[in-house]
């Protein structure tokens, strides 16, 4: 089946099997390898991307289902070479170690902060609970999200 998917503002068209998982389309057909696969059971969230702005696990969606949709992956976060606040936050607060869960974590956080710009620590912990991290113990990820929230608030007010 022919699908056209807009990823980070660019259209990718290809003829694919219906069973092709969206994550494989992103990684292999579009060659954007920042989106990772960490499990088979829609448990870990390493494959999280934004589909029309909403975080979804791209290993639990078929590429054909994303036909005509707009997807944001980690490669689409920085704009004009400038890191997004969430990326800055992960860097400043040491929110990543091996980096494997980081793209999914950041995309989940970006969508969450849009919904809830001033979250409490507990709200952040619940918001990222569909994304597993094995290295950091989450402490610094929570701080990274708080950092991004503050940066975004400053930008809004400034």
């Amino acid at each position: 089946m022919n699908v056209t998917i807009n990823i980070n503002g660019k259209e990718y068209s290809d003829d694919v099997e219906p069973r092709l998982l969206l994550v494989h389309f992103i990684r292999e057909n579009a060659n954007l390898t920042g989106t990772h696969v960490g499990c088979d059971t829609t448990s870990c969230g390493a494959c999280t991307v934004l589909v029309d702005g909403v975080p979804m696990k791209s290993c639990t969606m078929f590429a054909v289902q994303a036909n005509g949709k707009s997807i944001t992956t980690v490669e689409g976060l920085a704009q004009n070479g400038k890191l997004a606040p969430i990326q800055e936050g992960f860097h400043e607060k040491h929110g990543l170690q091996c980096g494997f869960c980081t793209p999914g974590m950041m995309l989940t956080s970006v969508a969450f902060l849009k919904k809830n710009p001033h979250p409490s620590e507990e709200e952040i912990r619940w918001a990222i609970s569909g994304n597993l991290c094995r290295c950091t113990g989450y402490v610094n990820i929570v701080e990274a999200v708080q950092y991004a929230a503050e940066k975004m608030a400053e930008a809004q007010n400034g």
């Binding site: 990684r27 390898t33 920042g34 490669e75 976060l77």
Partner: peptide
């Protein structure tokens, strides 16, 4: 590189 999805893991 990790922040930009430009890590180079085995599957990449």
């Amino acid at each position: 590189r990790f922040l930009r999805g430009r890590g180079n893991y085995i599957e990449d």
